[in-house]
Amino acid sequence: MSATPFLMLSAILFTIGAVGVLTRRNAIVVFMCVELMLNASNLALITFARVHGNLDGQVAAFFVMVVAAAEVVVGLAIIVSIFRTRRSASVDEANLLKY
């Protein structure tokens, strides 16, 4: 089976994630886009592991999953505490610090 479709999908997911981070307003959605980028990387790692016939990429994917879970814990805690303060999770409203 050709690896190309998987790599294409991975690149498309990564791009959707990156564009989402740069354009979306809601912190939760921005954060989900970051997770999408991480998972796109996971897909690329696993596809390449299959192509090369070694386990490096698969091991890496496991580590990335654990790290992503830890990131969710920290990230949601920060976003929730901001939301409780401002009653909003919009990244446009977090604008006290500038220039």
């Binding site: 790599l7 991975s10 990564f14 994630g17 990156a18 970051v34 980028m37 991480l38 796109a40 990387s41 690329a44 790692l45 596809t47 390449f48 192509v51 090369h52 070694n54 490096d56 990429g57 890496a60 990335v64």
Partner: peptide, 17 residues
Amino acid sequence: ALFLFGAALLYGATATV
């Protein structure tokens, strides 16, 4: 996330991390 995708591409090209 950018770093990780770059690492994945480097792994793809060189078969090692």
